[in-house]
């Protein structure tokens, strides 16, 4: 325990060292467009209320888009895994969609979904969809044949098989997909607000750029990163709780 703590503390020297390096670089530049961590710290302090309220709007949208993607895309992925031929044909499509940059997609989405909340949620859903479909597809392909035989010998019905065998055994992989999907919904929610802006942290960043407040913009970025950290930590926690059996197997072998 103490050794862990010591490592954790010493490890802090890496990000701290980078901060110092950044500060030194900033001091050699005379322009306000290259603020150092001290200035950004001040900006964080003075802009926190605005940033937090904008960030709240963004996170709500990201959550809505992610939830929508989960509800529609996980079943789709499993379905594609079961109907092999569709899955095979559609797998390059997933690669293609994954490569389209959001700034190129957004004008297209706007044609169908407008510029309001709905448009942004659709874009977030799209971004979250790719890892979710891919992983649930892969998961349903790689279910161990042994498990199906177990199901048959236990005389489980089709529904029971899916609920008791397919679902839990593909869960770990789906959760990995969900993790990637959460990351990309956060990323894309900010991007979409920067391009179709009315409110949210993306708009805040855009406005900071347009008024040359780089320190305020970096303060906003710091909060995005913090939000990402918290969400990821929470996710890791849930994963440990729900998938303890999976990890137990892994560490026990």
């Amino acid at each position: 325990m103490t050794r862990d703590r010591r490592i954790a503390l010493w490890g802090l020297s890496v990000p701290l060292g980078l901060l110092v390096l950044w500060q030194v670089l900033a001091l050699t530049q005379s322009t306000p467009l290259f603020p150092g961590p001290v200035k950004v710290g001040v900006a964080i302090w003075s802009n926190a209320p605005v940033i937090l309220s904008e960030l709240g709007i963004t996170l709500l949208r990201a959550a809505a888009g992610f939830a929508l993607a989960c509800v529609t895309m996980i079943p789709l992925g499993i379905f594609l895994g079961r109907v092999r031929i569709l899955g095979v044909i559609l797998s390059p499509l997933m690669d293609m969609l994954a490569t389209l940059p959001p700034p190129a997609i957004i004008p297209l989405v706007m044609l169908f979904a407008g510029t309001g909340d709905w448009a942004k949620i659709v874009i977030i859903t799209y971004a979250a969809a790719v890892p979710l479909v891919m992983n649930s597809y892969e998961a349903s392909l790689s279910i161990h044949p042994m498990l199906s035989r177990v199901a048959r010998s236990l005389n489980l019905s089709r529904i029971e098989t899916m609920r008791l065998i397919d679902w839990p055994s593909s869960l770990p992989m789906i959760v990995t997909g969900a993790r990637l999907a959460i990351a990309s919904s956060l990323l894309v929610s900010v991007t979409s607000e920067m391009l179709l802006s009315t409110n949210g942290i993306g708009t805040y960043l855009q406005r900071s750029q347009e008024t040359f407040r780089v320190d305020a913009g970096l303060a906003g970025i710091a909060f995005i990163s913090l939000a990402g950290l918290i969400v990821n930590a929470g996710m890791a926690r849930l994963e440990r709780r729900w998938l303890f059996w999976h990890y137990r197997d892994k560490t026990g072998d």
């Binding site: 322009t31 306000p32 467009l33 347009e210 008024t211 040359f212 407040r213």
Partner: peptide, 8 residues
């Protein structure tokens, strides 16, 4: 705007 925000 740049000049107003200290950009020379």
């Amino acid at each position: 705007n740049g000049r107003l925000n200290g950009v020379p």
